[in-house]
Structures are given as structure tokens and as C-alpha cells.
């Protein structure tokens, strides 16, 4: 009988672990919305999403939120002449790029926070030096105010965790799902956190929500 209880406990533990691993949490502000569907009151949770934006990538193409429809993507903030954490962040991002570059539903977007210096040709040169080709990893040039505004919506959950930080330049990678919801934030300067992000991206890609049947 004892053995049976042990076995049951172990099975329970394992299945508990499994169910924890199968979906990622959803971060950001949420609000409940009560709707009337077929005469019944239904309460739904509306999660924060990344608002639309308009920037230009290293090829000079205009990139808006629409270009990221149906994509899982990672966003970060950097500038090409940054001597401190940016080389570390992008050194850590390279394995992520290499792992998913053949997946058409995956993107990395790096917003420059120094648009005055980081013009489109400067971003293209940086991309070339980093060995980036194709459309998996976009380096985005845009108005400084617009970049900081979009940064705020990406970094809401970072702010909650760490109210004292200088979020925009703290080296976070933010994982966004196909519904433009925040699904994870990772310290881009820490290789262990970036490895976790890679694992989380695979988990996210496998979620039913991310694979709508047509």
C-alpha cells in the first residue's frame, strides 16, 4: 500500500512538472472584461499587447506591427557604438539567431536608442559585421520618442520586477507571442538566461494558441 502511495505521488509530481512546462505565463497588465455572449455573462481576461509602431530596418524597409503578425519574436534595445553591455547581449543573441533563422515565423528586432548616429547605412554595416543576412533579425531605426514609447510597453513586466532600473538600457530580451503578448523577459547579458529563453521559445512555438488551425 505504501509503495502504491509513493508511486502515485511520483506520478503526480511528474505530471505536475509537465503541465507547468507546457505553456509560458502571460505578462503585462491585464483587465477582466465582461461580455454578454448568447445571453450569458462571460468574463474574459484581456492581456496587454504591444501597440502598433512604424520603424525602418537595416535594409531601409518600413517595418510596422503588421510585419510581425503571425510571428513569435524577441525584442531588445541597443546602439551600435555601445561599449558596455550591447556586445555581450548580441554575442548571446547570435546562438538564438542561428537556432531559429530558418523558421519563417520567428523574428528578432533590435531597436536602436541612438537614432542620430545609427542611421540605416550604419545599421546595415553593423548587421554585415555581425554576419546577419535575410529577414530574421531586424535592426530598427526610428524616432527616439517613438522608440522609448514602444520600450515602455515592452518593459512593463520588467518594471514590475525591478522598479529602480534603467529599463531601456538594462539589456533585457523580451519574448512576444503571435498575439503580441509578453511571454517572457530575460537578462540578455546572462548566457544562462538566454539559454532559458531559447527553451521557452520552443515551448511557446508548441503552444496550441500559437498554431491556429486554418
Amino acid at each position: 500500500m505504501k509503495k502504491l502511495i509513493y508511486a502515485a505521488t511520483i506520478i503526480l509530481l511528474i505530471s505536475a512538472c509537465k503541465s507547468n512546462n507546457s505553456t509560458l505565463p502571460i505578462y503585462g497588465n491585464k483587465k477582466p472584461v465582461t461580455k454578454t455572449v448568447n445571453g450569458k455573462q462571460v468574463t474574459d481576461t484581456i492581456y496587454q499587447t504591444i501597440p502598433d509602431f512604424k520603424f525602418v530596418n537595416q535594409y531601409g524597409d518600413t517595418i510596422t506591427g503588421k510585419n510581425l503578425d503571425g510571428k513569435i519574436y524577441v525584442a531588445d534595445f541597443f546602439f551600435t557604438t555601445c561599449p558596455t553591455i550591447c556586445p555581450v547581449m548580441h554575442r548571446n543573441m547570435l546562438p538564438v539567431y542561428n537556432e531559429f533563422k530558418s523558421n519563417p515565423d520567428f523574428r528578432i528586432i533590435s531597436h536602436s536608442i541612438d537614432p542620430k548616429y545609427d542611421t540605416v547605412p550604419v545599421l546595415k554595416k553593423y548587421a554585415d559585421k555581425m554576419g546577419l543576412s535575410g529577414n530574421t533579425w531586424w535592426l530598427l531605426h526610428g524616432d527616439k520618442d517613438a522608440t522609448y514609447t514602444i520600450a515602455k510597453s515592452y518593459l512593463t513586466s520588467v518594471q514590475e520586477k525591478n522598479p529602480q532600473g534603467n529599463y531601456v538600457h538594462d539589456g533585457y530580451f523580451i519574448l512576444i507571442d503571435k498575439q503580441k503578448r509578453i511571454r517572457g523577459t530575460y537578462m540578455g547579458t546572462d548566457p544562462a538566461e538566454v539559454e532559458k529563453m531559447t527553451a521557452d521559445i520552443k515551448t511557446l512555438m508548441a503552444e496550441p494558441d500559437q498554431n491556429p488551425t486554418k
Partner: peptide, 15 residues
Amino acid sequence: QNCHGIKGDGLQSFI
């Protein structure tokens, strides 16, 4: 180390 890396391997064609 930030730029040249923990193993001194630089960064692609950048560093």
C-alpha cells in the same frame, strides 16, 4: 571582456 569576450574570441567581424 564585454567586447572581446570571455575567451578573447571577439565578436564576428565586429570586434
